[in-house]
Design a protein around this nucleic acid. Structure first.
Lengths: 354, 354
DNA sequence: ATGAAAGCGCTAACAC
DNA sequence: GTGTTAGCGCTTTCAT
């Protein structure tokens, strides 16, 4: 058996090492590095020199252990790919990072159990805050457990912020956008254009987001005195594939409609493709609108009329709430709600019915 | 001045608390929780009970300080929105998370200085590995500093993995995809279809990715004996906006071409829009191809022929390398290279020249 | 199988 | 302004 050459495994320099080299105490080094404490400029120079000399890098864990903030904020999103989440994540990330914190991101990939374990992880990390993004099924069997976890986090660790997501059963800060209002507005727009048989297509049926959007749709119908046909509400999925498949199927049925309100832009994209393939031209034969205003909306042919959701701003706001709640400076009632507005963006996918 | 009601500020339970309640020593609790150590099953039960009772959650910082792995891997990408990065990130995240590690993600938003500070942060976090994704400007004035940082990370902390990115001047593990090969292949495809005047459009000129793709384009031209016209290589940006603007300008010039090889799918999307607006039909009048095969490619009308890059797989591979290098089990030469293949995906945006 | 005790590297009183 | 000291909560020898 060959002898393993034992690598000396040079220990990383510590505060102590820096202190020794600079000829001061470790406390002084700590203060000099912390910045928020008076240290003689001569001393500071010596310390900075020693730091460079040794290639010293602070140990975040020791720092966190010894009592200062951990300096991290957790962000949990559904999926990194989906632009809906990506824009929110970008806003959060920007806000958190510019406050000198580190953003820990994880994706659930649709598994509610992963939410739980992520919160546990953040609890272990002693994160200052965690931000939960995205719609959720309030009926989920895991909901009570989630509520308990959230409470535990808020009590022990820090601020929890819900972003575009229904309450979890325990008070928290939250930032939402007006799902119902936007849905009502764009439905009214369709009605104003002369449509009465409007197909609502897609959206996981039990997801709060879907429920709110359908509610807005119904409200507009009712407000304008348009009769509601339950057959015209076909919830299901959020993807392009769903929109395509479902619309294909619908086109083979006897269901009649002159406009489609897709639960989001992806579904609209799928529906439009199916429509086109069946020789129905948008918007001449059928009008189509979406929701979210993610990049695909403007890239479609024709460009899609949709509801703009200020996703990045939503994220920034969530980030701000997270930090405000974590900072001991602001004594806010941890439970705060901000709602960001939505507005419809008119492009070329709507025309009067033929 | 009102008296501040002092909140009792209930301390979080520690290992010690659990030990006391379970009637054992903290060492035993540590072992029971660690899992990899024999503990009497009766003792274990008592401990688990106490843990639940107290709502005990381990402190990751104390754990990391006391010597075990930090259990985190850093991931640095250019932008959370860009599907190119998002797919890679998803692959990395999946791999890291399924290995029980926590993935710390940050975005540079194109600022090379943020790369440096992110590595510093990871150094502070004592991360097991960091993964740097995406093209980079090798001429950047920060390159030497980056090299130094990378070396420092590798020496002190853990594995550094480059993902789809040129070497940084010091040996590291890396996973790349064959940029040049893919570019050559799709160029040959265009040539085989009869094209000779092929416009290469977009891509930041000093970015390694662009350079490699242009190299592939040139290689194919040379291999097929097609004369190269320098005026046909117009590098610039990576966005849809760039593709649109630049193509619009080119259409107003006297430059002639029968096909466009866009540096990526976004540029292709922009170029196609400009083409369409100028009454040039794709692929009848002009053929267009892209690179990356991100979702927009298949959503375009007509669907885009492009080079498929297995982005998520790339990310997974990077994740694997990161963990392998971090694990002391595998004694690999920290510097390993894996190259994942690319292949062209034929859709409907290419036709013979008229 | 379990306990005692010594740190890990840092911050935060508390002295001077 | 700077040094001393006592932890922060855990893991890990070394005993037993």
């Amino acid at each position: 058996v060959a002898e393993v050459t034992p690598v000396p495994d040079r220990r990383r320099p510590t505060l102590e090492d820096v202190a020794r080299l600079a000829g001061v105490s470790s406390a002084t080094v700590s203060r000099a590095l912390g910045g928020n404490y008076p240290v003689a400029s001569g001393t500071r120079d010596k310390i900075e020199h020693a730091v460079r000399e040794l290639g010293y890098v602070a140990n975040a864990h020791a720092r966190a252990l010894a009592g200062s903030r951990a300096g991290t904020v957790g962000l949990l999103i559904g999926d990194l790919i989906d632009p809906f989440f990506a824009f929110i994540a970008r806003g959060v990330e920007r806000e958190i990072t510019s406050a000198g914190r580190l953003c820990l991101i994880a994706a659930t990939h649709g598994d509610p159990r992963r939410e739980l374990s992520f919160i546990d992880l953040m609890l272990e990390q002693r994160s200052e805050a965690v931000i939960l993004v995205g719609g959720a099924d309030p009926e989920s069997s895991l909901a009570p457990r989630l509520a308990r976890r959230v409470r535990s986090f808020a009590e022990n660790s820090g601020q929890l912020v819900l972003c575009g997501r229904p309450p979890v059963g325990t008070p928290t800060a939250a930032v939402r956008f007006d799902n119902e209002g936007g849905a009502a507005a764009i439905t009214e727009y369709l009605i104003a254009a002369g449509h009465e048989r409007i197909l609502f297509l897609g959206g996981p049926p039990r997801l709060s987001t879907t429920i709110d959007r359908v509610a807005g749709y119904r409200r507009a119908l009712a407000a304008r005195g348009v009769a509601e046909d339950p057959a015209l509400v076909q919830t299901g999925g959020f993807g392009l594939a769903y929109g395509y498949a479902q619309m294909t199927e619908i086109l083979q049925s006897r269901l009649t409609f002159t406009a489609v309100f897709a639960a989001n832009d992806n579904v609209a994209a799928g529906a439009m493709r199916a429509l086109t393939e069946h020789g129905r031209e948008v918007p001449r034969d059928v009008s189509v609108v979406g929701y979210d205003d993610v990049p695909v909306a403007s890239a479609l042919t024709p460009p899609l009329t949709t509801v703009h959701v200020p996703l990045e701003e939503l994220g920034r706001e969530a980030g701000r709430l997270a930090l405000a709640g974590a900072d001991p400076g602001t004594e806010d009632p941890a439970e705060r709600n901000v709602v960001v507005g939505t507005h419809i963006v008119i492009r070329d996918s709507v025309a009067p019915p033929r």
